[in-house]
């Protein structure tokens, strides 16, 4: 097994507004190894972005707050670092690609300035060298270097996302967090951007945390995958384990809702119901109300996470005591 790069332990993040407390992320554990690509899948509001922002300690506070847990990066708890120490990590050791490239770039600064900024910040390079490096980065992501002095509004969406990728990889980070990097792009551009990310991840030997709600994207890019539901990780394993030997009823629901090419599908098969309101999570399993295999004890207490074989983790009562009672 490769070395652990990032380890999230029992992370809990809450948002409190007007006396209401929303448990956005609820005691999750995650590990990312060096060079590994981990996919984090979940529907909107499951807490994916909150998890990502926690790693960089960028949760907007107020209203958000990390109340429990540790985020260890190379054995060092990031949550204990001072603001100054944390700034040396952001953009340098760990960097992030955001969801919407249309708004992620500063409209009044040239892309060159924005790429060179992060280089100058962390690599203490003189100005002109940083701009040469910025130009190289731009060419690496497939944009002609002479567009260094152009402003974001002169680029298309896909090209803007390339610029964002150039910024995030400029300092050769050990971990890249990609928060739905292709959601805002159309399918052909998605493919280009994913190919680029995959290529660069290999080239720079960067670990990747890919956040998405697209199962296909994860299958293409990642080796391991974590399924997130209502602030918890309900299933974790390698792509083969999770995709071929799906355990958790929620994960199965996700796969079943994809229409199949070789069957004559009249209607889509969605997972029934809505995700529970994170301000009022149920007592037992969060998925109980929507689960086709629900059992009485699911509504009484929360299941624990169990290993169903070779580090394939599932949080479901169906697999407790080794017996499949469904």
């Amino acid at each position: 097994m490769r070395d652990k790069l990032l380890e999230i332990k029992k992370l809990k993040v809450i948002y409190s507004t007007d006396g209401k407390v929303v448990e956005a992320v609820n005691h999750i554990d995650l590990e990312i190894h060096k060079g590994e690509a981990l996919g984090l899948i979940g529907e909107t509001g499951a807490g994916k972005t909150t998890t990502a922002l926690s790693i960089l300690n960028l949760i907007p506070n107020p209203p958000g707050k990390i109340v429990e847990g540790e985020i260890c990066y190379n054995g060092q708890n990031l949550l204990k670092l001072s603001q100054k120490e944390m700034r040396a990590v952001r953009g340098n050791k760990i960097s992030m690609i955001f969801q919407d490239p249309m708004t992620a770039l500063n409209p009044v600064m040239t892309v060159g300035d924005q790429i060179a900024e992060v280089i100058r910040l962390h690599q203490k390079m003189p100005r002109n060298e940083a701009y040469i490096k910025a130009q190289e980065m731009l060419e690496t992501v497939g944009i002609p270097g002479n567009r260094l002095k152009d402003f974001p509004h002169q680029f298309s969406g896909g090209m803007k996302q390339r610029v964002v990728i150039a910024i995030s990889l400029a300092c050769n980070p050990e971990l890249l967090i990609a928060d739905e990097p292709t959601t805002a792009l159309d399918v052909t551009i998605q493919e280009q951007v994913l190919d680029l990310m995959e290529k660069l991840q290999k080239e720079f030997n960067t670990s990747l945390l890919m956040i998405t709600h697209d199962l296909g994207v994860v299958a293409e890019v990642c080796e391991t995958v974590a399924i997130m539901y209502a602030g918890e990780i309900v299933e974790y394993g390698t792509i083969e384990q999770v995709y071929n030997d799906t355990k958790h009823p929620y994960t199965r629901g996700l796969f079943d809702s994809i229409p199949k090419f070789h069957e004559d599908v009249k209607r889509l098969k969605p997972i029934k119901g809505q995700m529970p309101n994170p301000a009022h999570l149920p007592v037992g399993c969060n998925f109980a109300d929507r689960c086709p295999d629900v059992m009485p004890k699911c509504r009484e207490s929360e299941p624990v996470v169990i290993d169903v074989g070779q580090n394939h983790l599932v949080k479901c009562y169906k697999y407790v005591d080794g017996g499949d009672q469904a």
Partner: peptide, 10 residues
């Protein structure tokens, strides 16, 4: 978002 980007740069 771009303010968050700037913060994420460190």
């Amino acid at each position: 978002d771009y303010i968050r980007t700037a913060r994420a740069k460190g």
